[in-house]
């Protein structure tokens, strides 16, 4: 039952966005996030949305997939919207009933916040998780952060940890399934009783899971040592990441988006909010 959980939902494909260098996509996502947080004008927001639509078209990810990624955050979305709606004070009072007061500014802020979150979630999916395999992502992060190695930040070790974690997620999920079955066979129940009872029922799962995980970690360390692993030093890679002209274009578009958004914030045509 736990097997149905898809983690870091990557959709293999051959689109331009899939083929782009993972570092490009990390940079692009960062630019996009920065742009979204700088935006203060309706036109700027529209520009962000348009950019996303363009990249979505380039990614060839089905729209339904992208929208299903929004489902888990609908609650947060509604919550933020309502909080902003009722709590923002402004000048033009539109509606008032008992203690509830809704201002024009409230509506605008609430809408902007909701759209911002929506674009953020769908955007990070399209730019990163749907189109980049997790291993490529850790590689990209290692390479982008490699200047930090000079000041003794263990960048390689972190990316190795990430890779191993990703490798063992499916294995540990299978193991959890097996342990749960074993405990059920001994009469344990995980779906009845109150919250505390259910939480308590998890203990007989977690303890064997941890014991097994430590055993695995031990074995893996020996196996890695056997394969001459001794940290990032002197290590080469089979696949070397390379930027193509398209990658430079994509990153340029990210920077341009930030510039345009900031410009629109200060220009009268931007419809400041």
């Amino acid at each position: 039952m736990l097997k149905d959980v898809t983690l870091g939902q990557y959709f293999p494909g051959e689109s331009p966005l899939h083929r782009a260098d993972p570092r490009t996509k990390v940079v692009l996502s960062l630019c996009y996030i920065i742009a979204l947080f700088c935006v203060k004008s309706a036109l700027g927001m529209l520009l962000c949305a348009l950019t996303l639509v363009c990249f979505h078209a380039a990614s060839r990810i089905p729209l339904r997939t992208v929208l299903s990624g929004v489902k888990p955050i609908l609650f947060i979305l509604a919550f933020t919207f309502l909080i902003n709606l009722f709590w923002t004070r402004g000048e033009t009072l539109l509606f008032s009933w008992k203690f509830i007061r809704i201002y024009r500014e409230g509506i605008v802020t609430a809408l902007m916040m909701a759209v911002r979150i929506l674009l953020l979630v769908t955007g990070s999916g399209i730019f990163l998780t749907y189109t980049t395999s997790p291993i490529m992502l850790t590689d990209a992060i290692e390479q982008l952060l490699s200047p930090l190695k000079k000041i003794k930040v263990p960048v390689h070790d972190f990316s190795m940890m990430m890779t191993i974690a990703l490798r063992f997620i499916p294995t540990l999920i299978e193991e959890t399934d097996r342990i749960m079955d074993a405990q059920k066979a001994r009469g344990a129940s995980f779906s009845t009783g109150g919250l505390i009872r259910r939480a308590k029922a998890l203990i007989p799962i977690l303890i064997p899971l941890f014991v097994c995980a430590f055993k695995r970690a031990d074995d893996l360390a020996v196996a890695m040592e056997c394969r001459c692993y001794r940290g990032g030093e002197g290590r080469t890679r089979m696949t070397r990441l390379r930027f193509s002209p398209a990658d430079y274009l994509m990153m340029l578009s990210g920077v341009l988006l930030i510039a345009a958004v900031i410009l629109l914030n200060h220009l009268p045509v931007g419809i400041a909010l």
Binding site: R167, M224, Y229, R235, T236, M238
Partner: peptide, 16 residues
């Protein structure tokens, strides 16, 4: 097995 893709795993030793 260290990596999430078969060929990446095989490359692990030579990479080291």
């Amino acid at each position: 097995l260290v990596a999430t893709v078969v060929e990446e795993d095989i490359a692990f030793g030579p990479e080291n």
